[in-house]
Design a binder for these strands. Structure first.
Length: 274
DNA sequence: ACCCAGGGGCAAG
DNA sequence: CTTGCCCATGGG
């Protein structure tokens, strides 16, 4: 039996920003610097182009969704999100691509993050054989770019941070692959030393780029959901207070639960929010 | 015109 | 340890 996957939810939930749906319903993207085309069919994930093993790893088909769901709390809010997002997988995204895109994400909507990612790929990425997409620019490529050129990709004040972090990674001063051996707390601390990376972005990078499924990013959407459905108290809690007091309630895969709540809220309340 | 967006960094309380 | 303010840009 093939593992289930909801491809649209997985690729449009705000964890990765460059996949495109083709006219025939298949999805085209890059796994690292390798072209891939995938399609959702009746039994699971069909690899139209690309290396099946690499695709399976990227889409984390080995994650046991049944066991993950069993750890979710059973309140109405969580069950509604689960019903809506069932099959959404937290993918294994290359760490640098994930880190860089989330540095650009601050105070930006998902569509804007996609635009910036596309502009950066077009301007600083490399062509990929067999694909109309371009690779995400390497740390060296962004380290060598001028702040003005990065601002030209729509980054605004984020340009300085992306450039500075790219320089740290390109020089080897920040060794992302070596950081994989750190425990969660040490990894978060290391990520937060990078320019443009605070607790929220660090948690996103841990969750989407380092397979730390307990990481619990609190953005404006999650903060609102937590305040409305999971917080009994008078004073308005800070994002940090929400993370510290609520992450445990969502279990060892709190990051999964968080992503289901985020995507469900964004898809169902987008229009109602003026 | 006004508001907000997957926030971070820094100064000040 | 918390709060207030600024930082660009784009879309509703």
């Amino acid at each position: 039996m093939e593992p289930e996957i909801n491809l649209r939810a997985t690729l449009e939930c705000g964890q990765v920003f460059h996949w495109q749906e083709r006219d025939d319903g298949a999805w085209e993207g890059l796994i690292g610097n390798v072209h891939a085309v995938v399609r959702e069919n009746a039994v699971g994930l069909e690899v139209v182009q690309g290396d099946p093993a690499a695709v399976a790893r990227y889409f984390a088909l080995d994650h046991d969704l049944g066991r993950i769901y069993a750890g979710f709390p059973r309140d109405a809010t969580m069950l509604a999100a689960l019903d809506f997002c069932r099959g959404l997988r937290i993918i294994r995204q290359p760490a640098w691509e994930c880190l860089a895109t989330f540095i650009t994400s601050s105070m930006k909507q998902v569509t804007h993050i996609r635009q910036m990612s596309h502009a950066l790929r077009a301007r600083f990425g490399r062509g990929v054989r067999g694909s109309r997409l371009r690779s995400y620019p390497s740390p060296a490529a962004l380290a060598a770019a001028s702040e003005e050129d990065l601002r030209g990709c729509g980054l605004g004040y984020r340009a300085k941070n992306l450039r500075a972090t790219a320089q740290r990674v390109a020089s080897g001063e920040a060794d992302l692959e070596a950081w994989r051996q750190l425990d969660d707390a040490a990894l978060r601390e290391a990520l937060c030393t990078l320019p443009g990376v605070g607790r929220k972005v660090a948690n996103c990078v841990m969750l989407f780029g380092f397979e730390r499924c307990g990481a619990f990013p609190v953005d404006t959407w999650i903060a609102r959901i937590m305040r409305e459905h999971y917080w009994r108290g008078r004073a308005k809690p800070t994002p940090l207070a929400l993370e510290r007091r609520l992450a445990k309630r969502f279990g060892p895969h709190a990051g999964y639960a968080q992503q289901y709540l985020f995507h469900h809220a964004r898809m169902t309340q987008r229009r109602a929010r003026r």
